[in-house]
């Protein structure tokens, strides 16, 4: 029996067998609190905006509302007007409606974020698993593994932002290139996480058991090791999505991201940046708030998932500790 556990698990100590399992279940499927509900509600709203966001402005216009605007529509007679009943969030210096654009912008940001994250998972995780599995065995395999990881080290030591700007600059400014640049930027994150887990998982008794049973490398990796090695990568996905959203906005802010006139949060902040110095705050503030909220929601989601994973890990540790006590 150890005494190093944090408060949440102490209750499972004194309880008898049943209570312990009950405690575990409580940790995993605790009733969603208000914050949790808000976080996943927020994720839902972002997804919804991704689908219908760009249409909201025109819909409002069709419905005869004076406040309705297309996100790329220009009302040059009313440039740089403050928030009003017609333009809820005001207009920017070229007369575009900030409100419609803020609703429309999450689409491109999220599409890029999801695509880049998915790609870096699809490439990074297998690379990491491979490096973790073959490392420390035959010389050639170890060398390959080391090469992969040292390459990831170097990739991470590059100034990521300028690296992305360079990629966009040399290969031309397009959504695809932005996605590729961000995929390369995040590749090492997933490769590292997957490798670290594979290194522990491959030493587990069940891996030996499968090996003794004569399962080949292929089956061993895909049936037994890989599914047990991807947990921390999965848990990192929301954080990376948030990061990519911020990164895309930063690229657009220096003019190396999404091409105008497509509504994109960083680009919108860029358009309003000069007005900020002279006191017209609305063209930059509103997209900035939207950007912050989006990333914050993903950060909360990441935190929530991490907390759940810790509970699982702890519960597993607790159970194996108990088993060893009973066996010993």
């Amino acid at each position: 029996m150890t005494t190093t556990d944090t408060p949440e698990t102490v209750d499972s100590f004194a309880a008898s067998g049943d209570g312990r399992i009950h405690g575990l279940r409580r940790m995993l499927f605790r009733k969603p609190g208000l914050t949790t509900a808000a976080v996943y509600g927020g994720v839902g709203i972002i997804l919804l905006l991704t689908v219908i966001g760009p249409s909201i402005g025109p819909w409002l216009a069709d419905a005869g509302c004076a406040c309705g605007w297309g996100s790329e529509q220009i009302d040059s007679g009313h440039a740089l007007e403050g928030p009003s009943g017609t333009h809820f969030f005001g207009t920017d210096r070229s007369g575009q409606d900030v409100f419609s654009r803020v609703l429309a912008a999450p689409r491109i940001n999220l599409v890029i974020a999801l695509a880049a994250t998915a790609l870096s998972v699809v490439i990074g995780v297998p690379l990491g698993l491979l490096a973790g599995y073959i490392g420390g065995r035959a010389l050639a395999a170890t060398a390959t593994s080391e090469l992969i990881m040292r390459f990831m080290d170097v990739l991470q030591s590059f100034p990521l932002f300028v690296f992305a700007v360079v990629l966009v600059a040399v290969r031309g400014q397009s959504t695809e290139i932005v996605i590729i640049a961000l995929t390369i930027v995040n590749l090492p994150v997933f490769a590292r996480l997957a490798r670290a887990e594979m290194l522990t998982v491959r030493e587990q008794p069940y891996a030996d058991a499968a090996r003794i049973l004569g399962h080949g490398n292929f089956r061993l990796i895909f049936r037994h090791l890989a599914p047990n090695s991807v947990a921390s990568s999965v848990a990192t996905v929301p954080m990376v999505i948030g990061f990519v959203i911020l990164f895309t906005a930063s690229l657009s802010f220096v003019g190396a991201g999404v091409k105008p006139p497509t509504a994109e949060l960083g680009g919108m902040i860029r358009v309003g940046a000069n007005n900020m110095v002279t006191g017209e705050w609305w063209p930059s503030i509103f997209p900035g708030v939207a950007l912050g909220l989006m990333v914050l929601i993903f950060a909360f989601a990441a935190q929530d998932i991490a907390a759940r994973m810790r509970a699982v890990k702890r519960a597993e540790g607790l159970m194996s500790a108990e088993t060893s006590v009973e066996a010993g």
Partner: peptide, 22 residues
């Protein structure tokens, strides 16, 4: 959490707006 979610360039603009423009 908040600090990790804010774009530094946007925060810079806010600070300029608050402490210089206003």
């Amino acid at each position: 959490l908040l600090a990790g979610s804010l774009a530094d360039f946007w925060l810079a603009l806010i600070l300029i707006f608050l402490f210089y423009a206003t």
